[in-house]
Simulated scan of single mutants.
Amino acid sequence: MFWLTRVRSHSMAPTLRDGSLALTRKLGRRTPIRRGDLVVVDSPELGEPVVKRVIGLPGERVTIAGGRVSIDGRALSEPYASPSMFNDSYQVPPAHYFLLGDNRDASSDSRTWRQPFVERAALVGRLWTGWRH
């Protein structure tokens, strides 16, 4: 099943602009989730569906320091993201994901949510990017 998702913030700029529409495909229960996927998450904290990028997978340690993100000690190449001065470290629990916006200093995401880790069931769709899926 496909639908159009409207981006309702600047958190994914420059990848996605506020107000833009993106073709989205429903995620089945067994659809694999990969790092870098752009997903629609049904956020109970924000009370609405939002678009974010999958950064941390179940069981990984995500470290953000000096504007760089590392996964289990290896720097992540993120040409799509703006650097941020935010610093912290997270251990992603089983069956959960760590999500960030590409416009790091303008994004409400796993770094700022009361519950930073998102259950698999809350990931409802993946945006079609035209080159990866």
Rank of each mutant, 00 (worst) to 15 (best):
D102E: 13
D42V: 01
Y90D: 03
P32H: 09
A75I: 10
N87H: 06
S108F: 09
A95M: 11
S84R: 07
V62E: 02
L100T: 11
L38D: 00
P14N: 10
R61P: 00
A22V: 15
L46T: 06
E60T: 06
D37P: 10
P83H: 12
D42T: 02
K26W: 13
S108P: 04
E60G: 03
R74C: 04
I55C: 01
R30C: 08
G73M: 03
R25Y: 08
D42S: 12
L76V: 13
S77W: 10
D88S: 10
T24D: 01
T63V: 05
T31V: 12
P83K: 14
R25W: 11
D102K: 14
L23Y: 02
L21V: 09
P93V: 04
N87K: 07
V50Q: 03
L27C: 15
G36L: 11
G73I: 02
S82M: 13
V69N: 02
P49K: 15
D102L: 14
Y97H: 08
Y97P: 03
D105M: 14
D88N: 11
E45T: 15
S107P: 12
A75K: 10
G67N: 12
K26F: 10
A75M: 06
S20R: 07
S107D: 13
A13P: 01
K52D: 05
N103M: 12
L23T: 02
T63H: 02
T15C: 13
R53I: 11
S89G: 07
S43K: 09
H96P: 00
T24V: 06
V41M: 12
Y80V: 06
V92W: 01
R53E: 08
H96W: 02
R25T: 05
V50D: 00
T63G: 01
K26G: 04
I55M: 04
D72N: 15
P94G: 10
F86Y: 13
L57V: 04
I71L: 06
G28M: 05
P79M: 09
S89I: 01
R30I: 07
P93S: 06
V50H: 03
S77R: 15
S77F: 09
I55H: 03
D72T: 01
T31S: 15
T24R: 01
V69M: 09
P14V: 11
G28T: 08
A13L: 15
N103V: 10
S82K: 14
T24F: 02
Y90T: 00
T63W: 01
R104T: 14
N87S: 12
I55L: 08
R61D: 03
P44Q: 08
I64Q: 01
G19M: 05
F98R: 00
G36Q: 13
Y80M: 11
K52Y: 06
P44S: 05
G66E: 05
L16Q: 03
K52F: 07
Y80D: 15
S89Q: 10
S89A: 13
A65F: 00
P32Y: 09
S84K: 08
G73Q: 00
L76P: 09
R30V: 11
Y80T: 13
V39Y: 07
